[in-house]
Computed example of a mutant assay.
Amino acid sequence: LRLNPQGKQDFLLLLANDFDVDYPTINNLVAQWDTSNPNIKGLKKALNSPRLRLLKLFNALPEGVKFLVDMRADLIQLQKNETALKPLQEDLRDLLGDWFDLGFLELKQMTWQDTPAELLEKLIQYEAVHAITGWDDLRNRIDSDRRWFGFFHPQMPNEPLIFIEVALVQGMASNIDQLLDQSAPIEDTHSADTAIFYSISNTQQGLASISFGNYLIKNVVAELIKQHPQLQHFATLSPIPGLRKWLNKHPTKVMQLLSEQQLNALNHYCNQHPDTWRPKVRLVRQSSCHHSDRKL
């Protein structure tokens, strides 16, 4: 919507309040409900709000589905302070959930040679796990030993809904840095036995709570097996959401999980890098520290 924030909120409130279901009609139908001759058709019609019928018309318009996806992204934020928008947001969520059924999605592989530059730019913009620093970094991630797949919808052919980045390697990768290293030699995909899924990004905020990730991974595994039958192992190397919060909340449990060798190594690292640590977790031995470096 090309409106200022207040104008956008006023429009959405109008849509939510003035195009809602007719509650008196619904109440009358419920009060007159006859189990021997139920007016199911009438009740279904009454429960289908005018705003929902209006929203469905956008499916036939160019960029109409993308418009609704962006509208829901606005609603998700605005409903936090304006609860009257929540029913409209939920109507739109259910409608988009039907339109973006998994059976309608198309799996596409992105490559440096065949993917339009406009779409490649969007991949840089949408990457949410490991930021892409530029075109050289992007090219490294879709080189001959890498695979980049995404789901697309027929009504949004130029917008990836979700994408996943894969590295084809020999053996299990031990850290993300070696996969993102632009100077690392290119792997021989014919001898690769492992596919590492190291980044997955949802791109459309308006499709929040509509899940694609599990289905995408299963489809990509099937496609990789077709392309490279010799692959034996499939693994993920991704950040664990909420891990640091859990570590801070349960320091004693963390220490109990570490071996004597790991505790000694952690103490040594704390002592060698005192300026990058702050007191937080008291180790079993003598040091107390908390680190923000991704090396651990």
Score class of each variant (00 low, 15 high):
residue 216 L to Q: 03
residue 100 F to A: 11
residue 189 T to E: 08
residue 260 E to S: 14
residue 19 F to N: 09
residue 119 L to Q: 15
residue 216 L to V: 08
residue 84 A to W: 00
residue 246 W to L: 15
residue 185 P to W: 04
residue 206 G to N: 10
residue 64 G to E: 11
residue 153 H to Q: 04
residue 254 V to N: 05
residue 292 S to W: 02
residue 24 P to G: 07
residue 206 G to F: 00
residue 206 G to W: 01
residue 200 I to V: 12
residue 284 V to G: 05
residue 244 R to T: 12
residue 241 P to Y: 01
residue 211 S to T: 12
residue 148 W to V: 15
residue 284 V to S: 12
residue 73 A to M: 05
residue 252 T to L: 11
residue 254 V to T: 10
residue 27 N to V: 13
residue 277 W to I: 15
residue 124 I to H: 02
residue 25 T to H: 02
residue 257 L to G: 07
residue 88 L to N: 00
residue 92 L to K: 10
residue 56 K to V: 04
residue 243 L to F: 07
residue 141 R to H: 03
residue 179 L to K: 06
residue 251 P to S: 02
residue 37 N to Q: 14
residue 165 E to N: 07
residue 138 L to G: 09
residue 245 K to F: 10
residue 94 D to E: 14
residue 281 V to N: 09
residue 89 Q to T: 14
residue 290 H to M: 08
residue 269 Y to Q: 13
residue 55 L to A: 13
residue 69 V to H: 00
residue 263 L to G: 05
residue 75 L to R: 09
residue 213 G to R: 08
residue 47 L to Y: 07
residue 61 L to Y: 10
residue 195 A to F: 01
residue 201 S to I: 12
residue 231 L to K: 06
residue 7 G to E: 09
residue 279 P to V: 10
residue 11 F to P: 00
residue 292 S to D: 11
residue 33 W to Q: 01
residue 40 I to Q: 09
residue 103 G to V: 07
residue 54 L to G: 09
residue 237 L to D: 04
residue 112 W to H: 10
residue 233 H to W: 08
residue 8 K to C: 01
residue 250 H to N: 15
residue 248 N to W: 13
residue 162 I to H: 02
residue 69 V to S: 05
residue 114 D to K: 10
residue 239 P to R: 02
residue 66 K to M: 11
residue 96 L to F: 03
residue 150 G to W: 05
